[in-house]
Design a protein around this nucleic acid. Structure first.
Length: 347
DNA sequence: AAAACGGGGAG
DNA sequence: CTCCCAGTTTT
């Protein structure tokens, strides 16, 4: 048996029972693929079920408010996925009358869809023989063929895509693509792969040469920036607060947060109230207290956010328009959601 | 070509 | 703690 036949044979006995595999409806497949970008199946599952229930068709998704979609996406991360998802839903409804494009070439033009997702949808839904290359595929191929080209280099991306395409079973491309991904996720795992009873172990270069732990090769690691966040949690006498939407570049676009003052280090109360930014915000005397005695470190892939929440109790404030009872309706970063859960439980 | 973009789970 | 997950977009 050749590589792809053996892989599909493995898949028929070991595949995961996943809800988006019960259909070839491109809307559902697209939804699952976007949610699972850089996201584990276990983490994305509940979101997929919630979205398909709330938005049974692409028309329902297109009709929704962006804020509603972001709120439902809250906690899943990489929020540009949710915004692009909404944009593309509206685009497909208005430009294509709701009919999903059916070829790789047309699918990849959609916002939020790159080579991987276009290949996945084209093969799974429309039987177009386009090979997917995700993290699983890089790992399986680099190990089995003993390829040490860095998977995140231009050369590696090209090389692995071409290899994947030659291995693809063109008569069942969707099944093959899902087979190699499941194989990577279940058998050929990043750590402690199950080589002892792997159907490929006799012909796997990495296993035979004892290079399982060095493949795939990935070059350079990212540097993490430290930032210092001071959130001003306003609580007026008439039970209002202030939330701002994050706009422009950077993290958490479209999500809401308390007024933020960023500093260059951890600061104390005296330092906070002497900052020009703070004085401009609260000219009047107010009661200020630090909510978390020890700074909260919220870790993102590229930055560590050292965060202090300052509770500011004051008289009625014209800028404070948001009733505390409605705060939890806004889409917020997990950092803010965690704070709210604790803060609101102690009232 | 490199950096930015979230959050969580495994080891 | 480090690594990495059904990657894409922006710089």
């Amino acid at each position: 048996m050749n590589f792809s036949n053996k892989l599909i044979s493995w898949y028929l006995q070991n595949n995961r029972d996943l809800p988006w595999r019960k259909t070839k409806n491109p809307y559902f497949v697209w939804l699952s693929e976007i949610m699972l970008q850089q996201t584990r199946v276990a983490q994305g599952m509940s979101y997929y079920l919630k979205f398909t229930e709330t938005f049974p068709t692409i028309f329902d998704l297109a009709k929704a408010d962006e804020s509603t979609i972001l709120k439902m996406w809250q906690g899943l991360g990489y929020y540009s996925r949710a915004r692009n998802l909404h944009f593309t839903a509206k685009h497909i409804v208005s430009e294509f009358n709701g009919e999903f494009p059916s070829t790789y070439a047309t699918i990849i033009k959609l916002k939020g869809i790159g080579d991987y997702t276009a290949s996945a949808i084209a093969s799974i839904c429309f039987d177009e023989p386009t090979a997917v290359v995700d993290g699983n595929v890089y790992r399986v191929l680099s190990r089995y063929f003993g390829i040490d080209t860095p998977i995140n280099s231009s050369k590696g991306i090209k090389e692995f895509k071409e290899l994947a395409q030659t291995l693809l079973d063109e008569n069942q491309s969707g099944t093959y693509n899902q087979a190699i991904m499941d194989f990577g996720a279940i058998q050929c795992k990043p750590k402690k792969p199950l080589c002892m009873f792997c159907p490929f172990n006799e012909s796997c270069v990495a296993y035979q040469k004892n290079k399982i732990d060095v493949l795939p090769v990935k070059e350079k690691k990212l540097k993490v920036k430290k930032r210092y966040f001071n959130y001003l949690v306003v609580k007026t006498d008439d039970n209002n607060t202030i939330l701002n939407e994050r706009k422009g570049k950077g993290i958490w676009q479209g999500l809401y947060q308390f007024p933020l003052i960023e500093s260059d280090k951890i600061i104390n109360k005296d330092e906070l109230i002497s900052l020009e930014e703070f004085i401009n915000f609260f000219p009047e005397a107010t009661t200020i207290s630090l909510y978390n005695k020890k700074e909260i470190v919220h870790k993102l892939s590229h930055q560590h956010l050292y965060t202090q929440f300052w509770v500011i109790e004051t008289a009625t404030l014209s800028k404070a328009k948001i009733d505390w009872k409605s705060v939890e309706k806004y889409p917020v970063p997990v950092l803010i959601a965690n704070f709210l859960e604790d803060f609101l439980s102690k009232k």
